[in-house]
Design a binder for these strands. Structure first.
Lengths: 116, 116
DNA sequence: GGCATCCATAACCCTGTGGTTATCTATAAC
DNA sequence: GTTATAGATAACCACAGGGTTATGGATGCC
Protein backbone atom coordinates (compact mmCIF):
# COMPACT_ATOMS: atom_id res chain seq x y z
CA UNK A 1 0.00 0.00 0.00
CA UNK A 2 1.49 3.32 -1.06
CA UNK A 3 1.44 6.71 0.59
CA UNK A 4 -1.43 7.99 -1.52
CA UNK A 5 -3.58 5.07 -0.49
CA UNK A 6 -2.69 5.56 3.17
CA UNK A 7 -3.64 9.22 2.88
CA UNK A 8 -7.03 8.24 1.50
CA UNK A 9 -7.72 5.42 3.95
CA UNK A 10 -6.66 7.22 7.11
CA UNK A 11 -8.38 10.34 5.88
CA UNK A 12 -11.58 8.40 5.33
CA UNK A 13 -11.35 6.91 8.81
CA UNK A 14 -10.76 10.30 10.42
CA UNK A 15 -14.49 11.10 10.40
CA UNK A 16 -16.89 9.48 12.83
CA UNK A 17 -19.78 9.54 10.39
CA UNK A 18 -17.77 7.50 7.92
CA UNK A 19 -16.66 5.09 10.63
CA UNK A 20 -20.30 4.67 11.59
CA UNK A 21 -21.16 3.96 7.96
CA UNK A 22 -18.50 1.27 7.83
CA UNK A 23 -19.84 -0.24 11.04
CA UNK A 24 -23.32 -0.32 9.57
CA UNK A 25 -22.09 -1.90 6.34
CA UNK A 26 -20.33 -4.55 8.37
CA UNK A 27 -23.80 -5.88 9.17
CA UNK A 28 -25.35 -5.81 5.70
CA UNK A 29 -25.17 -3.85 2.48
CA UNK A 30 -27.26 -0.67 2.56
CA UNK A 31 -28.56 1.95 0.19
CA UNK A 32 -28.15 5.69 0.59
CA UNK A 33 -31.58 6.10 2.17
CA UNK A 34 -30.81 3.47 4.81
CA UNK A 35 -27.60 5.22 5.72
CA UNK A 36 -29.10 8.70 5.72
CA UNK A 37 -31.69 7.50 8.25
CA UNK A 38 -28.86 6.77 10.70
CA UNK A 39 -27.81 10.40 10.95
CA UNK A 40 -29.30 13.85 11.32
CA UNK A 41 -27.67 15.11 8.14
CA UNK A 42 -29.01 15.44 4.62
CA UNK A 43 -28.84 12.81 1.90
CA UNK A 44 -26.26 14.72 -0.18
CA UNK A 45 -24.00 14.86 2.87
CA UNK A 46 -24.16 11.09 3.16
CA UNK A 47 -23.53 10.73 -0.55
CA UNK A 48 -20.38 12.80 -0.13
CA UNK A 49 -19.16 10.54 2.65
CA UNK A 50 -19.85 7.51 0.48
CA UNK A 51 -17.77 9.02 -2.29
CA UNK A 52 -14.86 9.50 0.10
CA UNK A 53 -15.17 5.90 1.28
CA UNK A 54 -15.36 4.66 -2.29
CA UNK A 55 -12.26 6.59 -3.35
CA UNK A 56 -10.42 5.10 -0.40
CA UNK A 57 -11.41 1.65 -1.61
CA UNK A 58 -13.36 0.98 1.57
CA UNK A 59 -16.70 0.40 -0.13
CA UNK A 60 -17.92 -0.74 -3.51
CA UNK A 61 -21.28 0.20 -4.97
CA UNK A 62 -23.63 -1.42 -7.45
CA UNK A 63 -27.06 -0.58 -8.70
CA UNK A 64 -29.95 -2.63 -7.48
CA UNK A 65 -32.90 -1.31 -9.42
CA UNK A 66 -33.34 2.31 -8.49
CA UNK A 67 -31.11 1.94 -5.46
CA UNK A 68 -27.35 1.84 -5.12
CA UNK A 69 -26.15 -0.63 -2.55
CA UNK A 70 -22.93 0.08 -0.70
CA UNK A 71 -20.80 -2.91 0.23
CA UNK A 72 -17.93 -2.95 2.71
CA UNK A 73 -14.49 -3.57 1.20
CA UNK A 74 -12.28 -4.20 4.17
CA UNK A 75 -9.01 -5.00 2.44
CA UNK A 76 -7.61 -1.45 2.81
CA UNK A 77 -8.24 -1.77 6.53
CA UNK A 78 -6.01 -4.81 6.52
CA UNK A 79 -3.29 -2.82 4.79
CA UNK A 80 -3.71 0.06 7.23
CA UNK A 81 -3.45 -2.39 10.10
CA UNK A 82 -0.27 -3.72 8.58
CA UNK A 83 1.18 -0.22 8.53
CA UNK A 84 0.20 0.39 12.15
CA UNK A 85 1.59 -2.96 13.17
CA UNK A 86 5.08 -1.77 12.28
CA UNK A 87 4.90 0.28 15.48
CA UNK A 88 3.74 -2.50 17.73
CA UNK A 89 7.19 -2.84 19.28
CA UNK A 90 6.75 0.66 20.67
CA UNK A 91 3.58 -0.30 22.48
CA UNK A 92 5.69 -2.60 24.59
CA UNK A 93 6.48 0.06 27.17
CA UNK A 94 3.13 -0.55 28.83
CA UNK A 95 2.81 -4.27 28.23
CA UNK A 96 4.82 -7.14 29.64
CA UNK A 97 3.38 -9.43 26.99
CA UNK A 98 3.57 -7.83 23.58
CA UNK A 99 1.45 -10.58 22.11
CA UNK A 100 -1.40 -9.78 24.44
CA UNK A 101 -3.46 -7.76 22.01
CA UNK A 102 -2.94 -10.01 19.03
CA UNK A 103 -3.68 -13.10 21.06
CA UNK A 104 -6.94 -11.67 22.32
CA UNK A 105 -7.79 -10.60 18.80
CA UNK A 106 -7.24 -14.08 17.44
CA UNK A 107 -9.32 -15.63 20.18
CA UNK A 108 -12.22 -13.31 19.40
CA UNK A 109 -11.86 -13.99 15.72
CA UNK A 110 -12.08 -17.75 16.27
CA UNK A 111 -15.28 -17.29 18.21
CA UNK A 112 -16.74 -15.17 15.48
CA UNK A 113 -15.79 -17.46 12.62
CA UNK A 114 -17.18 -20.45 14.49
CA UNK A 115 -20.54 -18.74 14.40
CA UNK A 116 -20.54 -18.50 10.64
CA UNK B 1 -10.68 4.95 22.96
CA UNK B 2 -13.55 7.33 22.17
CA UNK B 3 -14.66 8.83 18.89
CA UNK B 4 -12.88 12.13 19.51
CA UNK B 5 -9.59 10.35 20.02
CA UNK B 6 -10.09 8.27 16.88
CA UNK B 7 -10.79 11.44 14.93
CA UNK B 8 -7.53 12.92 16.15
CA UNK B 9 -5.41 9.82 15.65
CA UNK B 10 -6.68 8.89 12.19
CA UNK B 11 -6.58 12.54 11.23
CA UNK B 12 -2.97 12.79 12.34
CA UNK B 13 -2.09 9.67 10.36
CA UNK B 14 -3.81 10.97 7.22
CA UNK B 15 -0.78 13.08 6.30
CA UNK B 16 2.37 11.53 4.89
CA UNK B 17 4.62 14.15 6.45
CA UNK B 18 3.33 13.23 9.88
CA UNK B 19 3.68 9.53 9.16
CA UNK B 20 7.26 10.20 8.12
CA UNK B 21 7.85 12.08 11.36
CA UNK B 22 6.55 9.12 13.34
CA UNK B 23 8.79 6.79 11.36
CA UNK B 24 11.77 9.00 12.16
CA UNK B 25 10.88 9.15 15.83
CA UNK B 26 10.65 5.38 15.90
CA UNK B 27 14.43 5.42 15.52
CA UNK B 28 15.34 8.05 18.10
CA UNK B 29 13.94 11.19 19.65
CA UNK B 30 14.54 14.27 17.53
CA UNK B 31 14.32 18.02 17.82
CA UNK B 32 12.46 20.31 15.46
CA UNK B 33 15.58 21.13 13.49
CA UNK B 34 16.32 17.45 12.90
CA UNK B 35 12.83 16.88 11.61
CA UNK B 36 12.77 20.01 9.46
CA UNK B 37 15.92 18.79 7.73
CA UNK B 38 14.01 15.74 6.51
CA UNK B 39 11.61 17.78 4.41
CA UNK B 40 11.58 20.68 1.99
CA UNK B 41 9.17 22.68 4.11
CA UNK B 42 9.77 25.44 6.63
CA UNK B 43 10.33 25.01 10.35
CA UNK B 44 6.96 26.48 11.33
CA UNK B 45 5.24 23.96 9.07
CA UNK B 46 6.98 21.13 10.91
CA UNK B 47 6.07 22.69 14.24
CA UNK B 48 2.42 22.64 13.16
CA UNK B 49 2.63 18.97 12.30
CA UNK B 50 4.21 18.27 15.68
CA UNK B 51 1.34 20.07 17.39
CA UNK B 52 -1.15 17.87 15.54
CA UNK B 53 0.75 14.75 16.55
CA UNK B 54 0.95 15.94 20.13
CA UNK B 55 -2.78 16.62 20.33
CA UNK B 56 -3.43 13.13 19.01
CA UNK B 57 -1.25 11.77 21.81
CA UNK B 58 1.20 10.31 19.31
CA UNK B 59 4.22 12.22 20.57
CA UNK B 60 5.35 13.80 23.81
CA UNK B 61 7.80 16.66 24.01
CA UNK B 62 10.26 17.83 26.62
CA UNK B 63 12.86 20.55 26.71
CA UNK B 64 16.47 19.53 26.49
CA UNK B 65 18.34 22.80 26.91
CA UNK B 66 17.41 25.06 24.05
CA UNK B 67 15.91 22.19 22.10
CA UNK B 68 12.59 20.42 22.43
CA UNK B 69 12.85 16.69 21.86
CA UNK B 70 9.90 14.87 20.39
CA UNK B 71 9.30 11.32 21.57
CA UNK B 72 7.08 8.71 19.97
CA UNK B 73 4.05 7.69 22.02
CA UNK B 74 2.71 4.65 20.24
CA UNK B 75 -0.16 3.73 22.54
CA UNK B 76 -2.81 5.50 20.44
CA UNK B 77 -1.60 3.42 17.50
CA UNK B 78 -2.36 0.33 19.51
CA UNK B 79 -5.87 1.59 20.17
CA UNK B 80 -6.37 2.46 16.52
CA UNK B 81 -5.19 -1.01 15.57
CA UNK B 82 -7.70 -2.43 17.99
CA UNK B 83 -10.45 -0.51 16.27
CA UNK B 84 -9.34 -1.70 12.84
CA UNK B 85 -9.08 -5.24 14.07
CA UNK B 86 -12.83 -5.34 14.59
CA UNK B 87 -13.07 -5.59 10.82
CA UNK B 88 -10.58 -8.38 10.34
CA UNK B 89 -13.34 -10.92 9.76
CA UNK B 90 -14.20 -9.01 6.61
CA UNK B 91 -10.72 -9.39 5.26
CA UNK B 92 -11.35 -13.11 5.11
CA UNK B 93 -12.90 -12.99 1.65
CA UNK B 94 -9.48 -12.95 0.09
CA UNK B 95 -7.66 -15.18 2.54
CA UNK B 96 -8.03 -18.86 3.24
CA UNK B 97 -6.05 -18.45 6.42
CA UNK B 98 -7.32 -15.50 8.41
CA UNK B 99 -4.47 -15.77 10.84
CA UNK B 100 -1.96 -15.25 8.09
CA UNK B 101 -1.33 -11.57 8.70
CA UNK B 102 -1.20 -11.75 12.45
CA UNK B 103 1.04 -14.78 12.37
CA UNK B 104 3.51 -13.09 10.09
CA UNK B 105 3.40 -10.01 12.26
CA UNK B 106 4.12 -11.96 15.39
CA UNK B 107 7.04 -13.74 13.75
CA UNK B 108 8.56 -10.44 12.71
CA UNK B 109 7.99 -9.03 16.15
CA UNK B 110 9.82 -11.91 17.77
CA UNK B 111 12.78 -11.31 15.51
CA UNK B 112 12.82 -7.66 16.39
CA UNK B 113 12.49 -8.12 20.11
CA UNK B 114 15.25 -10.71 20.09
CA UNK B 115 17.59 -8.05 18.80
CA UNK B 116 16.99 -5.78 21.78
C1' DG C 1 -44.93 8.85 -22.15
C1' DG C 2 -45.65 10.41 -17.42
C1' DC C 3 -44.70 10.05 -12.77
C1' DA C 4 -42.45 8.73 -8.47
C1' DT C 5 -38.41 7.36 -6.20
C1' DC C 6 -33.53 7.09 -5.29
C1' DC C 7 -29.61 9.29 -5.61
C1' DA C 8 -26.00 12.46 -7.74
C1' DT C 9 -24.48 16.94 -8.76
C1' DA C 10 -24.11 21.90 -8.52
C1' DA C 11 -23.62 26.02 -6.06
C1' DC C 12 -22.79 27.96 -1.99
C1' DC C 13 -21.16 28.79 3.06
C1' DC C 14 -18.12 28.33 6.86
C1' DT C 15 -14.35 26.37 8.88
C1' DG C 16 -10.12 23.78 9.02
C1' DT C 17 -5.67 22.66 7.09
C1' DG C 18 -1.15 22.94 5.11
C1' DG C 19 1.84 26.01 3.65
C1' DT C 20 4.34 30.65 3.70
C1' DT C 21 7.11 34.86 5.88
C1' DA C 22 7.94 37.70 9.73
C1' DT C 23 8.53 38.08 14.43
C1' DC C 24 8.59 36.91 19.28
C1' DT C 25 10.18 33.98 23.30
C1' DA C 26 13.25 31.02 25.81
C1' DT C 27 17.47 29.13 26.79
C1' DA C 28 22.59 29.01 26.61
C1' DA C 29 27.09 31.20 26.15
C1' DC C 30 29.93 34.85 26.77
C1' DG D 1 23.30 42.38 29.64
C1' DT D 2 24.24 40.95 24.83
C1' DT D 3 24.14 37.85 21.49
C1' DA D 4 23.11 33.54 19.12
C1' DT D 5 20.27 29.70 18.44
C1' DA D 6 15.93 26.72 18.75
C1' DG D 7 11.48 26.83 18.27
C1' DA D 8 6.75 28.95 18.91
C1' DT D 9 3.41 32.22 17.43
C1' DA D 10 1.02 35.49 14.41
C1' DA D 11 -0.81 36.89 10.16
C1' DC D 12 -1.80 35.67 5.91
C1' DC D 13 -3.07 32.76 1.63
C1' DA D 14 -5.08 29.02 -1.12
C1' DC D 15 -7.77 25.30 -1.03
C1' DA D 16 -10.00 21.18 0.84
C1' DG D 17 -13.80 19.40 3.76
C1' DG D 18 -18.24 18.94 5.81
C1' DG D 19 -22.45 20.79 5.74
C1' DT D 20 -26.61 23.01 3.43
C1' DT D 21 -30.53 23.72 -0.36
C1' DA D 22 -31.92 23.26 -5.01
C1' DT D 23 -31.99 20.71 -8.97
C1' DG D 24 -30.92 17.15 -12.39
C1' DG D 25 -30.52 12.19 -13.98
C1' DA D 26 -31.61 7.21 -13.88
C1' DT D 27 -34.54 3.58 -13.01
C1' DG D 28 -39.17 1.29 -12.17
C1' DC D 29 -44.03 1.40 -12.61
C1' DC D 30 -48.45 2.59 -14.43
Amino acid sequence: MNEDQLDLVFGALADRTRRAILARLAETDANVGDLTALFTMSQPAVSKHLKVLEQAGLISRNRQGTMRLSHLQAEPLKDATGWLADYRTYWSESYDRLDQLFESLNETKLNETSEE
